[in-house]
Design a protein around this nucleic acid. Structure first.
Lengths: 118, 118
DNA sequence: GGCAACTACCTTGCATTGCAAGGTACTATG
DNA sequence: CATAGTACCTTGCAATGCAAGGTAGTTGCC
């Protein structure tokens, strides 16, 4: 192997974090799927593609967290705008709280002994 | 559906975060698998079982990030102690750096508009 | 009209992986 | 022998990220 395979780890890390990012992105207002892809792709450490985002939007909409409506585009096919439902807004609050708890736990593990080896 | 299904989301969130927690736990020194289970289970927001931890330890050992050695127990079967290899220590540094980057990106998404709905 | 490029949506199929459940085995207690 | 605790591991299922491929509307070029 030679070098440490961080790439594969980062792939795994993104899992689960995506939904958190999505609901927080949508909390700023409705946006359409293709735009979600581009905006999330700009978050450092978070490389996403359409194959990830569209199924995720579908799942969360079916789960009742997102609303969706079609709107014609000035140029190109119609856009499907997604927004947070009231359930989605509740979920966002809970998710951010869970996230905060997890961060604390991880931070504790990270800080126990920074750079020694017994 | 009625209530927001946060449970399922938390399950997904844990994915990928586990390896980060593990390497930081091992950075404190060698511990054996059964003990890893108990210690990680105490991290808030991180409920893990043997079915999660043992395959993970195996994977990371095969990837060269962990060392393993058997040691007899004063009572019960032999324990397999795991520790970070030099690759594992390098990986830990990189992983913590990636984690920091991701946190920043997520924090930005979270803070854009905290609690309004206008 | 024909063709390529961009926007915008969605689905299929594969690989990974968390985890409940089940299995093996050692030690100690009764 | 039976039970309980420690300690390891594997099997099988469900979830999901993502590369790849597909459909369709608009624009611009020849």
């Amino acid at each position: 192997m030679g070098t440490v395979n961080i790439d594969n780890w980062v792939v795994q890390l993104r899992k689960g974090v995506l939904e958190l990012c999505l609901v927080n992105l949508l909390a700023n207002g409705e946006i359409y799927g293709y735009d979600v892809v581009k905006q999330l792709a700009r978050v450092k450490g978070l490389v996403v593609t359409e194959g990830t985002v569209y199924p995720l939007l579908s799942r969360l909409r079916k789960a009742g967290l997102l609303t969706a409506r079609l709107e014609e585009s000035p140029s190109g096919p119609a856009r499907k705008y997604y927004g947070l439902s009231s359930e989605g807004r509740q979920a966002r609050v809970l998710m951010n709280a869970c996230w905060g708890d997890l961060l604390k736990g991880i931070a504790e593990l990270q800080k126990e002994r920074e750079g020694n080896h017994g």
